[in-house]
């Protein structure tokens, strides 16, 4: 299985991810909680690109590929925005109290918690994020 989705760097594009992952879920007979978690991971990864990768604006494409490889589901997300390596973001401290917890900083944390591996490469001016989940 291999599926591709091209998104633009606009917030409303996030809505397309649910349908994309639903189709994958049906094709691979994934459990609903797995589909939910993968939707969450893709939203966190893609929204980071949409919100921060293109500070100068202008319409840009974000490419997402999903494929099964060695009994793992692999997502490859690529964009030509500013260099950003999510694997270098420090983990959110989830032991803080409600009053101390900062608002935000949870997206990358959720990606790390849910996926089995998160790999980042900068290749020829492209951010390439490879997310893998064991099936």
């Amino acid at each position: 299985m291999e599926k591709k989705l091209i998104l633009l760097n606009e917030i409303s594009e996030i809505s397309k991810l649910a349908g994309f992952i639903e189709e994958i879920g049906e094709e691979l007979s994934l459990q609903p909680d797995m589909v939910f978690n993968l939707n969450l991971v893709l939203e966190e990864a893609v929204s980071n690109v949409i919100l921060y990768a293109y500070p100068d604006g202008g319409t840009q494409e974000i490419h997402l590929t999903a494929k099964v490889c060695n009994s793992a589901l692999l997502f490859v997300l690529s964009d030509r925005g500013v260099e950003f390596d999510p694997t270098q973001v420090p983990d959110a401290d989830i032991t803080l109290s409600g009053e101390e917890r900062p608002i935000g900083g949870l997206g990358v944390y959720l990606i790390r918690q849910i996926m089995n591996s998160v790999e980042y490469k900068r290749i020829d001016g492209e951010n390439v994020l490879i997310l893998s989940k064991d099936l």
């Binding site: 969450l40 939203e43 966190e44 409600g98 917890r101 608002i103 949870l106 959720l110």
Partner: peptide, 14 residues
């Protein structure tokens, strides 16, 4: 469904 954007609203409201 809720993502970290929703969690931000929940924590902010709290």
């Amino acid at each position: 469904y809720v993502s970290s954007s929703g969690l931000r609203v929940v924590l902010g409201s709290h």
